[in-house]
Amino acid sequence: MIEVEGLTKFYGPKAAIQEVSFQVARGEVVGFLGPNGAGKTTTMRILACFMPPTSGTARVAGFDIGKDSLQVRRRIGYLPENVPLYGDMTVRQYLTFAAEAKSVPRQERGKRLASVMERCLISDVSDRLIRNLSKGYRQRVGLAQALVGNPEVLILDEPTLGLDPKQIIEIRSLIRDLRGERTVILSTHILPEVAMVCQRVIIINESRIVAVDTPENLNLRLQKSSRILLEVDGPAEEVQKALAAVEGVLTVAPQEARDGRRRFLVETDREQDLRKDLARAVTSNGWGLTELRPVDLSLEDIFIRLVTREEEA
């Protein structure tokens, strides 16, 4: 559905993205992940035909973004990062305008508007001025204008930015519902969001793609060690020494103390399960073991690793 080849964009001498290539299949939800300034917005703006790349090509539904820009624009719905809307229009006026601009036939307009507003949960504010809406509602109006042209592809730049937790959950479930029905590219810097919503992740850092995979695979690939968290009632230094002495332990990192109890994050060789050995090491010294649990490498950690690995290279 989307094929991107060697996309590069320079702002003056500074490269925003370099040699970005990836593909997105029909009906897939793909997450664009990266720190601020990595090039997510630039990539999305180019795909949305807002601006041309310095070099490289991209095709959306078989149409070139440069030569057939109008055809591409007919097939996409775009939500820019800061959700720019016309404040002095009501929601209904604005969506009517968007539908007209996107050539929705007059007979279908009313029905389309109603269904989009219902889907985005904004029917109750349809006659209010956009200027007076809360951030959450504005975001949903933005999503509604992206959907109103019934596009095959949705490009959403930070769709949950600045929302409260309840609104974030609503927007995410809305995007999840689109899975299979439309192709979605969304960018975010909130990592759990990607795991929750996306089938595939593209990690971009310092203008280049560093990894493309499913969230689960990334997890497996990078989890070369497993980690165990212990909470021990005992003298800090001695406990640390005792834990480090257990065979198979790579590192022991003391964590912040809570209620006078010491917490340690132990990184172990992935092949062995050291939980029993660690427990024995604590109890045989007469200290109290209050908690012991394995810790999964979170997407945050994966992300940090990928990004720092890139820096070391």
């Binding site: 703006r45 035909c49 007919r74 720019p84 601009a101 204008q145």
Partner: peptide, 14 residues
């Protein structure tokens, strides 16, 4: 200024 130009330029309008 408002940034609405970004959205307008991505609509299928010349």
């Amino acid at each position: 200024k408002a940034g609405t130009m970004e959205l307008l330029l991505t609509y299928p309008v010349r």
